[in-house]
């Protein structure tokens, strides 16, 4: 079964219009892991559609871009499972605002994770059927994890007054 699934991935990668790279790893239990890098994010919907019916989306991870020449701040990893075969597809968002196309129309399990990625990392997901924020209230702007002050930073700076001076300064009040 796993070999059949691997062959499906190889054939799928070959059909990507803008090209893709594929590599394989395994663990000490001989479970197989496929790693696909799409050259162009525009091919993502095609890949998501063609990986059906065996492939299902498990989750999506936004990560720091690995390639040194990458213009985007983040790259996005789509984790699929095909009957026990894990396949991770990596794309670089494009556009002035980092943008990826939604794959929720083919994989309903992408619904929540695309919305979470959009609000946490500020990556725009186009054509999402239900694009409201997942966790945070709509009045909270995107990129909250990267913009807001973590509690640990706030408590660490309590002894130096640095943070409170900054906060009070921004509010226009004197210390």
């Amino acid at each position: 079964m796993i070999n059949t699934m691997k062959q499906r991935v190889i054939e799928l990668v070959d059909t990507m219009p803008n090209g893709a790279e594929l590599s394989w790893t395994d663990d000490l239990k001989e479970n197989q892991y496929g790693w696909v890098t799409l050259k162009n994010v525009a091919d993502l919907p095609l890949f998501a559609e063609k990986i059906l019916p065996e492939g299902r989306l498990v989750t999506i991870s936004a990560c720091n871009a690995k390639a040194e020449d990458a213009k985007a701040f983040h790259e996005v990893c789509y984790h699929f499972v095909m009957k026990g075969l894990s396949v991770t597809v990596t794309v670089l968002p494009t556009g002035v605002e980092p943008t990826v196309p939604s794959i929720t129309q083919w994989h309903k399990s992408a619904d929540w994770t695309e919305r979470e990625m959009a609000e946490s990392y500020g990556i725009t997901v186009t054509d999402h059927p239900n694009p409201r924020p997942l966790f945070l209230h709509e009045t909270v702007q995107s990129e909250a994890i990267e913009r807001l002050v973590p509690l640990s930073t706030m408590t660490n700076s309590a002894s130096t007054n640095a943070l409170w001076e900054k906060i009070m300064g921004e509010k226009g009040e004197e210390n």
């Binding site: 790893t25 663990d27 892991y33 790693w35 984790h79 499972v81 894990s86 991770t88």
Partner: peptide, 8 residues
């Protein structure tokens, strides 16, 4: 080492 992995 530097690398990436999926575990289920």
């Amino acid at each position: 080492p530097a690398g990436q992995a999926v575990a289920r």
